[in-house]
Write a protein that binds this DNA or RNA. Sequence first.
DNA 1: CTGAAAGCGCTAACAC
DNA 2: GTGTTAGCGCTTTCAG
Lengths: 340, 340
Amino acid sequence: MKKNVSLKDIANQLGVSVSLVSYVLNGHAKKMRVGDEVAQQILDTAKKLHYQPNQIAKSLKSKKSQTIGLIVAEINYGYTAGIVRAIEAEAKKNGYTVIIGNSHEDLALLHEMIHVFINRQVDGLIIVAAEQAETEVQYLKKKEIPFVLIDRIFPSIESNFIGIDNHRVAYEAVEYLYKHGSRKIAFLNYETTFFHLKERTRGYVQAIAEKGLKYKNSMLREIRKSSYDADVEKAIRELTSPPLSCDAIFFATDTLAISGLKNLINLKIKIPADVAVISFDFAEAFALFACPVTHYRQPLAEIGNSAVKTLLDEIKEGKKPKWKQLYLQSTLVAGKSCRE
Amino acid sequence: MKKNVSLKDIANQLGVSVSLVSYVLNGHAKKMRVGDEVAQQILDTAKKLHYQPNQIAKSLKSKKSQTIGLIVAEINYGYTAGIVRAIEAEAKKNGYTVIIGNSHEDLALLHEMIHVFINRQVDGLIIVAAEQAETEVQYLKKKEIPFVLIDRIFPSIESNFIGIDNHRVAYEAVEYLYKHGSRKIAFLNYETTFFHLKERTRGYVQAIAEKGLKYKNSMLREIRKSSYDADVEKAIRELTSPPLSCDAIFFATDTLAISGLKNLINLKIKIPADVAVISFDFAEAFALFACPVTHYRQPLAEIGNSAVKTLLDEIKEGKKPKWKQLYLQSTLVAGKSCRE
DNA sequence: CTGAAAGCGCTAACAC
DNA sequence: GTGTTAGCGCTTTCAG
């Protein structure tokens, strides 16, 4: 790799000192009362030599890298694509670059990515946490590293968080199905310790109870990650046949919705004639389903936006953060997968 | 943010010099004949203080960051998800970290990401290039920055490249449709300057000619990005009705396949009864289509793997690269979207 | 075996 | 207005 031109190179070329060059190139020419002529010459040769500042050196000196680290749970989630775009846009507007890390929903990998980013001196972190990442969050707090969690929150720990009200959306989804004539409403969720997912279950359960719906056998199915395909297959098969014979399925995530719909296709079940379907989140894949899938959609642009703003506020403050939690609105996108 | 512990902190605490600490913590204790006792003490206090090396300082000194920059064209492509995973895995195996940048298929953004990464001293780049990125590639060559292109190649420029033989796969796809009884085979591609996409068209055209198929009006449709939705809608409508009335559609990319299938659904066209369908690439979204979509699948794991290996070879060599092009095999995944 | 010191490229306080 | 210099945290040569 060819040597990059440094401040010194252009200083030597002009026979001036590095500091002058530094001032000028950082726009401090006026403040430092650098001679107009010299300033211009510096600018010119910098351009001529294609000077590019060495960010590594800058960071070492300033302890700031103008970079924020974003750790996502999985690169191919619909959530990820949307949030990455939003965060990149807002970061860029503020002169920050985003570097992305991938935890694959794995606690050990999350731990690793956090340290990789810290060692690279990111100025702050935006994190979609993995399950049971409480220790990691505590660590960030102890080290006073600016961070904001998105999507997943740990209620036992005070922290910055931007997300949605999972309980409420789940409650509303059930209500929507009820209003549209469904009475035997099943719910598919992961077996999980994630608070945001348990909130969805709580919303479902509460709504079912308040509507006075009672089921002899549980219509609530929890899918184990370890036996994902088999569990989904079994759940869908049992839910859609006697004795359960549900008339609606509410999927707690878009990934579950995709798997579930695949199984419904295999069983030749008509949506919404036989079973109504609603998904908590949106996936691109819905596009190819036989009918538009009714779903709630998170305001990813706003979430990303607020996450960056919250983070930058904290980075700039430098003092004890006033932990901020923001719950935004999911909006219903009515398709044709529920009854009229 | 709390101050991190540095080599000096450890040295002070023990009353030894930083160099000793550096040796020990880098595993050079033996080579440098550091006293066993001292070495052990250093290790112990390093652990006790949770020492984390400052990679920025390391990089500044060594001119190496043990990081490779990956610039993808779009974060939500199926290609991206697969390739990211493969590249991360192989990089990690070699002690490298991957940071990801997103060009959004935009030349200016690609340019920016390249410079962001260079300034952050990545040791090399893996790039899914944007259209007309020849200048960028030339720049990397001139600066002697190790890089390998994947997916998209510029035939006018010698460079490292890992991808597939687009002409051949397209040719084979047509042949497959032909063997399965299709005679009026349409092809949907982007209007593009990308070589890899033009190769797909060339493969289609050649196969059609060699099979002796002749169409009065062209069955080859090129979609403009600027009027994407309208173009796809029009193309599918015209292709599936007189006078064209094709009996098969070959989609040049997975994104085109998704849009095309959406339109086919709207027109209530039966797959494969009315029209057979085959896609050049795979998308998760296919999962929810009424029948399994026959498609070719790129060996993403191998592509990512080879890309990292090629890159690391070049990084280690340090001398003039022996440009290497590698064309891997796509494999047919037979679904039920073609006739028997 | 261990320590002092230079230097990676940059910033900024200070001196002239 | 401009130059000198210290130092960010680390590696590594050279002296002892």
